[in-house]
């Protein structure tokens, strides 16, 4: 189907698209901070590619959101307050060292792989088509990040302990990834969006296996319950302020 049945469904789909778009945008922002500072020249190029792809994916979701709500992507990104952002806390954390960056990217890419595959089954054609397009690039990201995961996990003692430290730091944030927004259940029933809890448990199985192959162990602790998407860490506000500072110099002009 190419249009949604009613206003309430439209709002629900739009809400979920905003979460997906914000995730890509904020992760891309963090990744772009590596440009010019990566561990080796080839990786500078590779990582700038990933950041571009994610920015491109954010744009795809924001555009789809515009088609549902009429909201302009640039207005949405540059003139929204930090508390209105709906991204995961995991993606807003500072870029950290290369181990942290690789591990976060790995967790996100593996999640995306399953999530996009499921989105391709959406009955809402624009979502299915966008997921298919994004999936092509994500498959490559995953191959790249998985290669890094096993090499850093099994490289030297130092690389292994840095990866383990990154995992200890990131793992508490992982359950937010499959937490569904209120009333999301309706979208699942109507086959518009996938069942996040089911994807989450498949994802966790996969990730645990691959982490262990890389010599890494998720810590036994986590957050008691996943925070809502409107709850953020202290790191989001400065990120958004930096991102919006030029655009807000002239609020009505073109840039």
């Amino acid at each position: 189907m190419t249009s949604l049945p009613d206003e309430q469904t439209t709002q629900l789909v739009a809400g979920r698209l905003l979460e997906m778009a914000d995730d890509e945008l904020i992760l891309s922002h963090r990744n772009s901070e590596w440009t010019g500072h990566a561990p080796i020249l080839e990786e500078d190029i590779a990582f700038a590619n990933i950041a571009q792809d994610e920015m491109g994916h954010a744009l795809i979701w924001y555009e789809l959101l515009r088609s549902l709500t009429g909201r302009d992507p640039d207005r949405l990104v540059f003139f929204r307050e930090p508390c209105e952002y709906r991204n995961l806390q995991m993606v807003e954390l500072p870029k950290g060292d290369w181990a942290f960056t690789v591990l976060r990217q790995y967790l996100f890419d593996t999640w995306e792989a399953g999530h996009l595959e499921a989105l391709e089954q959406s009955r809402f054609t624009p979502v299915a088509e966008a997921a298919q397009k994004i999936g092509k690039e994500e498959r490559y990201h995953l191959r790249h990040t998985a290669a890094w995961l096993c090499r850093l996990g099994r490289g030297t003692e130092e690389s292994n302990s840095r990866m383990q430290a990154a995992l200890d730091q990131l793992w508490p944030f992982h359950s937010q990834i499959w937490a569904a927004p209120p009333d999301y259940e309706r979208l699942v029933t109507e086959s518009l969006m996938p069942d996040l809890a089911r994807l989450g448990s498949l994802w966790e199985d996969r990730v645990r296996t691959e982490l262990s192959e890389a010599g890494l162990t998720p810590p036994g602790f986590g957050q008691p319950s996943a925070p809502l998407r409107d709850e953020h860490t202290e790191h989001l506000q400065p990120l958004i302020e930096e991102m919006q500072q030029v655009a807000r110099l002239e609020t009505e002009a073109g840039w």
Partner: peptide
């Protein structure tokens, strides 16, 4: 900052 990374991949 990248030294340990390059060394780790060389070791692997």
């Amino acid at each position: 900052d990248g030294r340990w990374v390059r060394e780790a991949l060389a070791a692997y």
